[in-house]
Design a protein around this nucleic acid. Structure first.
Lengths: 225, 225, 225, 225
DNA sequence: CATGAATGAGAGTTCATTCAT
DNA sequence: GATGAATGAACTCTCATTCAT
């Protein structure tokens, strides 16, 4: 306990921030913001919403609590950024799935399933969405951010909608179908995530496939699926 | 502390509890438990889950905090009771809708719609369900209570399932359809409740009707809906 | 949940109080006081001091909390009565051990060992003693009660002191020896009870016997032990 | 909440913490930890264990409750640190007493008496020891800390044990004697502290000296004491 | 930018005690 | 005597946020 020694805690912190700095001297703030976000995501995925405090995030990021407020104005802003990131991953996943030369029917099936699977495999992203889209006022979810997030959410459904239109559905109907599909997807995910679907002894994946089959049947007038 | 003085606090309490006592001298404990529950529901509906503390509930009920613990062992037990009550109302609503002499198709339509409408009109009951069915362990949501609540939820869907079977669907298929319907319902409600459905410029009621129409069409083999 | 039913809780309570009433119509209050005390002792022995609340005692005794205050003015008075009882048992034990025709040396040995063993075998009685003899002012440990308890404690040591005098020790010395013995006993018990004696890899019983042997050796001038 | 106003509370805090800061700019955290500990000790010595709450400690230290938790993870950790400190003082006292060139017999006498006197003069340190060595699990008294505290306790008795061995006692016997001495010491202290020894009209110091005399007599085979 | 100390409000829970009935 | 409802103060602990340095 000599006065000149450095506590292990401190060392860990310094090590923890190394990655952020190694990304280069330009835009170091962005990189550090990232590292905070990474810590937040990890914490949130491990501990869930309630138990993820600013302290916890700071600790994992290798910062002190106060430092977080250099990058984010509030806890909710952190979650806002987290959700933005999550939606980016969602879009990547959907785009990757729908890419390539395929029939439009297959494109519908692949895009929609990618959306479903993304949340089925990452239920914490679902939590994230609900948390922010539900209750959050003070500072975090500004109208601008809200608009932006909505746009990214819509974007993730766009490939499906486009493919439905390409299959011959009029745009109004395509929109209605994609909205219904979105709802069905969310419903299945929520029920699955809260364990309610087990009580019906059903599997969420099978139900999703069935719904998708019916949708495609409607869209192709019974010619395809 | 003069014997003749009554603290203002005390007066407020007495006034606050008047309703509970007017229900008659028999079973006053039940009435008081009710009044706590009413306060809790009101608080919860106004402020939401997070901001509804035991203190808040006590204040609204006209009790001190400690008194609540005569009626409920924990905050979570309060919410458990609240959800039980909510599910009772749901079941009442569904039963009332499905009662009377009707065709089976209409019975499906009415039971399912009652379920949907219950939560559409009382979105806080939806929150309640999610809150408890998601995270809550320590004391409040015992396995028994959980089982019991699940049973009530299932019961609210039973009339629909029965009617589907009466329409000729084999029991396995009826179960699958009712589960899918449940998911669709929840999905629409959640999207509607979180304001996400507006961004598609769709109405949740129309989408629900459409889904139900398709379901009935499947169930009657195209003869009815 | 019919209004006319009696809760199991209530039944248990009524059953719990049966014993107290069966002791006859005369002095029923004393019997009930006893039953409260029994409950308190059981609770205290099972749960320890901290976790034994008036609620707990009332529950075990089959009374409501308020009823306890008919018999005892405060929680501390309950413990006072409990300690009185404990000291009675201690005295019984010591007297029984010292009874019968024996040599004075054996009388010393038996009386002292009985004292030691009583607390060694019932460490909760030791807790009781410490709790009350240490901190307790408000209402529970009145000077009278304190005096009375002291008298019973002295009484439990008296046989040893008498026997020492009978062995030839002048009264002043006998008193000093018995006080030292008392201290040694308490020290060993406390160390044993708090697990500190294990860390010396010693047994409290052996140490006690050794001390007693030395004492007897001193008392008999080396002729006996 | 004007920007220029300072709440009286704040002023009090600043005044309260003055001492800690005067210790110099280096290691201020340690100094503040100290000041909390000082407040805790004072509170504990004045009010006793039960009535010393974190609030009380915070108030005396000039902090808010939350601030305490920067320094100690729990109330029990505070007491752990307090006991550690106490044992350090005990060891200092014993070492100082036994230092210097002396006969082994005198060394025994001085070390043992220092131990006894430390607790006789600071009875609250005795309470501290009992409190922690008895009941305390959750967070504060980790096995490691327990072990460490035990080691310090043993260390305080080691000089006596060493001197006894130097006097010619085989190590096993020296250990037994030191354990018995420890018990005797504790017994006398406890009886004295709880006022029980007065009822025998004895002085704890005289009794201690007598015991020590006998011990030395045994150890030197009657040649010295 | 970052630190680290501190705030202050609030959380759920417990409990001895009181008192109208 | 006994009930049972209620009080009110106390408890430990947590947390987002602020700010002087």
């Amino acid at each position: 306990m000599a006065a000149s020694s450095i506590s292990p805690r401190r060392l860990a912190n310094k090590a923890g921030r190394a990655a952020a700095r190694e990304l280069g001297p330009q835009a170091p703030a962005d990189a550090r913001r990232r590292s905070v976000l990474d810590a937040a995501r990890t914490a949130f995925f491990e501990l869930g919403m309630d138990k993820t405090s600013m302290r916890e995030i700071a600790q994992r990021a290798g910062y002190t609590v106060g430092a977080l407020y250099s990058y984010f104005a509030s806890k909710e802003e952190v979650y806002g950024a987290l959700l933005a990131e999550s939606l980016e991953r969602l879009n990547d996943s959907v785009e990757r799935a729908a890419a390539g030369r395929r029939s439009e029917a297959e494109r519908v099936q692949r895009a929609a399933t990618a959306f479903f699977d993304f949340y089925r495999e990452n239920p914490r992203d679902l939590d994230l969405g609900f948390y922010l889209f539900q209750g959050m006022k003070p500072r975090g979810l500004t109208p601008q951010l809200n608009e932006q997030l909505n746009a990214r959410l819509r974007a993730a459904l766009q490939p499906t909608q486009d493919a439905l239109q390409a299959l011959g559905l009029p745009s109004k109907l395509a929109l209605a179908e994609v909205t219904a599909l979105f709802a069905h997807t969310v419903g299945l995910l929520v029920l699955s995530h809260t364990g309610r679907i087990r009580m019906f002894k059903q599997g969420s994946r099978e139900l999703f496939d069935a719904y998708l089959g019916q949708l495609l049947s409607r869209a192709t007038g019974g010619q395809e699926a």
